[in-house]
Design a binder for these strands. Structure first.
Lengths: 148, 148
DNA sequence: CAATCTATGTCAGAATCCTGACATGAGTCA
DNA sequence: TGACTCATGTCAGGATTCTGACATAGATTG
């Protein structure tokens, strides 16, 4: 039964539970975003632009955990829909800073309300101390993984 | 600055950090599994079969967080490679119980060692109490999300 | 100053995964 | 018993995402 002789016990593995929780969260988000005609990456992109206006395609990709190629096709679609605007040419280097249009802002507001509901449900049975602990532990794990 | 007026603050959002941690973990796992010619889902499938021999394709899919269609093409490939065996026809219903072959078992052992190293690094800076708290909090979040 | 390195945006192709659908077998219930 | 529901394995098609590659611009380094 020990983890040393046998494989990794999935029921007590932080890694497996991390994947499970992340998967459940993504599913719940897709569920509430679908009626709004939005995907999770789509929402993430708008939310990122709301908090850091002028983020580049590559930066958005990194923070949304997709490749810049994927983010670029999304940005092109969002530009076509008038939710995001980018200058025709770069003022410095090759970076094209993206910004939310008023239309994109309205889309985001609807999505944020929906997503906030999901996050609230996810945290409903946790105390404030639990949530703080979760933040600290998750940040520690990310840092440890990255310095590999 | 409040979460009520503005959007969701990504830096203090448990949901965003969950995705970030999960993404970092997946990246690290891909990194160590690639030299072994294995994907994360591939590894997950073998690990699941080691712990619950006889799991069906659909069950494996659920526990590996992919669709049964995706798991099925993986299982077919693993059968071709001689890592997994399934009976030609079902003895009851349509369920085809899958099992690890000795060859699959050896592949899994190599992968488990690699993955255990990743998980160990991820948890290196956490106390036992932290890890217990993480397990409890993650389980609570999963349960809350599922009863939506 | 020149060479190298790094990072960006973008294009094309391939791989992956999912959505939709079908037939089959088991359980449920009137 | 018969109708209904549910779950399984599987096939085909499409959508999404990634891998690889290229030219370009800034930073770094000798």
């Amino acid at each position: 039964m020990s983890q040393d002789a046998d494989g990794i016990d999935l029921d007590t593995s932080v890694g497996y539970l991390l994947k499970e929780a992340s998967s459940a969260l993504r599913l719940s988000m897709e569920e509430v975003l679908k009626p709004l005609g939005m995907t999770v990456t789509h929402y993430a992109c708008l939310e990122l632009l709301a908090q850091r206006p002028g983020l580049s395609n590559s930066e958005l990709a990194r923070r949304a955990f997709v490749t810049r190629q994927s983010m670029n096709v999304l940005l092109q679609a969002l530009e076509r829909q008038g939710q995001v605007s980018r200058p025709a040419e770069a003022s410095v280097g090759r970076v094209l800073p993206a910004r939310l249009t008023p239309h994109g802002r309205r889309s985001l507001d609807r999505a944020t309300a929906a997503v906030r509901g999901v996050e609230r449900r996810m945290l409903a049975d946790l105390t404030d101390a639990d949530q703080s602990a979760a933040l600290r532990v998750l940040r520690t794990m990310v840092a440890s993984l990255r310095q590999g």
